[in-house]
Structure formats: structure tokens, C-alpha cells
């Protein structure tokens, strides 16, 4: 996933940040950092989905030593990107596979349509290219043609897919998949799940059951519970992460669809609040369109620097 990822990230993010940057430039070209200027800056951050609370915090940090001073556009952006980097740096961590887990089991969860299946396809490609034997489990036994969708990702990536018919028990499928992964000596097992809204108690309970069944075969698994977030989401991401974390023990995040204009700015607040690792970002629909999450690059790109 190295080589050129940065330029692709920038290409994606520069679209996201054009408006943001334009706004900041308008506000701060040779201007005094007074209350009006700060409020405008706060508004710009809010428009980037950072959320009102985080926006206020960041502008206060900016005002601390610079209130009423002349400040250039470049300086504003740098300071803000540094603040954001500080927040995000600790959570920028790769999703590492431990071969001795045999297989390392990753359960992929999230709300409907966030990009779970696609991210699994991308991860499968990434890990198999790095020499690991990858297997996928079509655990979305609910949505129409979800099984077929993952099977196509199997063909694309040359990884095998364990599947049952739509309507089958998702937990049972997970059980089968672990057995099969062991039989075939796979290093990684990526388990897809049906999208579900976090406020649906019964569907969340079903996910808990999947985990219970996984633990019957592998008590220390799932080794990762990856939650996939769509960058277009707004403040509801707080509720999503909180409830998924509390019920199924999310261990890390993936942020998809960063190739659009949505900034995924809520991530900054999420990092502060939950401190969950952010492993990868999605920047397109193809197998190669995944990048590691890198705090400084993300923050600087978000602010239109570099």
C-alpha cells in the first residue's frame, strides 16, 4: 500500500478540502484574529463535520497565543493542522495480522451501506499481496445478493470465500468459516456482516451471537473487530461508534468514501472521545483504492497544505 498513496490521498482529500481551504483563505488573508474572525473559522470547521464542540475547541487553541494579532492564511492552516495531527497521531495504526493466530480473525461491522464488503475486498487484496493466505466469509446472509457480491470480490482478489445461502444463520457461517480456514491453513479470515443500525437491539444481539460462536472455536477471537464508517456521515457517527464499541467491542475503524467531498471531520472528535485506532481509509470503489491512515498527511491535506 505504499508508493503513490500519498498523491492519491491528496487528490481525494484536496477535493474534500477545497471548500474548507477556500473558506479559511477568505477569512484570514492578512487579517486580525479577532472574535469575528474566530467565529468565521469555527463555522468553517463546523461545515467540515468536525462538530460544534470540536470546532470551538480548535479555534480556542488557535486564539490562545495569537488573539488580536495579524495572522496569515498559511499560519492558520498550519496551526490547525498541527492541532488535528496531535489528536489523530495516536490513533493512526495499521491493522496488523498475527500469523500465529492461525487464522487471525477480523470481524467487519458497521451500519448499512458504509462500505464493509468493499473494504473486505480491498483488505483481502492487500494482505494476499503481502504474502498472507486470506479467506473471506460471506457473513451477510440477509441482504439480497450480498453473498454474490463478496464472491465477486473473491474472484477479483483470488481469495477463497466461505458462503452459505442467503437467509442462513450468520453465526453458523462464521463457525464453518473458521473450521475451513484452519483446514486450509489460512493466515487471515475476514468475516463480512450484514449492515445494521446501531439502535436495533435485535440486530446488535445477533452480532453478539456471532462473536459468541466465534469464541467457541477460538476463545481469543475475533482478534480485530473493524468498524467501517462512511466519510459522509455527520454527528451520528458518535452514536454509531459508541454503541458498536459497547456491544461488540470494536477495536478499530476504517473511514471510506474519502474520494468524495465529505471530509469525515467527525473523525477528529471520535479520536478524542474513543481513541480507537484508525487503520485504513477508502478512496474509491476499486480493490486498490485503500490507504493506510496517516495522521499528519490527513490533517495537512484536510487543511490544504503540501
Amino acid at each position: 500500500m505504499s508508493g503513490g498513496w500519498f498523491s492519491k490521498l491528496k487528490a481525494g482529500l484536496s477535493k474534500s478540502s477545497n471548500k474548507l481551504v477556500g473558506g479559511i483563505t477568505d477569512v484570514f488573508t492578512k487579517r486580525k484574529l479577532d472574535d469575528d474572525a474566530l467565529e468565521e473559522l469555527e463555522d468553517i470547521l463546523i461545515a467540515g463535520d468536525l462538530g460544534p464542540q470540536t470546532a470551538i475547541k480548535l479555534t480556542e487553541a488557535l486564539a490562545k497565543n495569537r488573539y488580536d494579532k495579524e495572522i496569515s492564511d498559511e499560519e492558520v492552516r498550519t496551526v490547525l493542522s498541527e492541532e488535528i495531527t496531535k489528536i489523530l497521531e495516536p490513533v493512526a495504526q495499521p491493522l496488523e495480522i498475527n500469523k500465529s493466530h492461525n487464522p487471525h480473525i477480523v470481524l467487519v461491522v458497521g451500519v448499512n451501506g458504509s462500505g464493509k464488503t468493499t473494504t473486505i475486498g480491498k483488505l483481502a487484496k492487500h494482505y494476499s499481496e503481502s504474502g498472507l493466505k486470506v479467506m473471506m466469509a460471506a457473513g451477510d446472509t440477509f441482504r439480497a445478493a450480498a453473498v454474490e457480491q463478496l464472491k465477486i470480490w473473491g474472484d477479483r482478489t483470488g481469495c477463497s470465500v466461505v458462503a452459505r445461502d442467503t437467509g442462513a444463520d450468520a453465526a453458523g457461517l462464521a463457525f464453518d468459516a473458521i473450521e475451513q480456514a484452519r483446514n486450509e491453513n489460512a493466515d487471515v479470515l475476514l468475516i463480512d456482516t450484514a449492515g445494521r443500525l446501531q439502535n436495533k437491539k435485535d440486530l446488535m444481539a445477533e452480532l453478539e451471537k456471532v462473536i459468541r460462536v466465534i469464541k467457541k472455536l477460538a476463545p481469543d477471537a475475533p482478534h480485530d473487530v473493524l468498524m467501517v464508517l462512511d466519510a459522509t456521515v455527520g454527528q451520528n457517527a458518535h452514536s454509531q461508534v459508541e454503541i458498536f464499541r459497547d456491544t461488540v467491542g470494536v477495536t478499530g475503524l476504517a473511514l471510506t468514501k474519502l474520494d468524495g467531498t465529505a471530509k469525515g471531520g467527525v473523525l477528529v472528535a471520535l479520536a478524542e472521545k474513543f481513541a480507537l485506532p484508525v487503520h485504513v481509509i477508502g478512496v474509491g470503489e476499486q480493490a486498490d483504492d485503500m490507504r493506510p491512515f496517516e495522521a499528519n498527511a490527513y490533517a495537512r491535506s484536510l487543511m490544504g497544505l503540501d
Binding site: V111, G234, A262, K263
Partner: peptide, 12 residues
């Protein structure tokens, strides 16, 4: 459109 959409809703 998704009711969970954030500020980007206007742009979209």
C-alpha cells in the same frame, strides 16, 4: 439520501 448524512448533504 441517507438520513445520517452530515454537512456534505448540501453539496450533494
Amino acid at each position: 439520501a441517507d438520513s445520517m448524512t452530515g454537512q456534505d448533504a448540501v453539496t450533494v
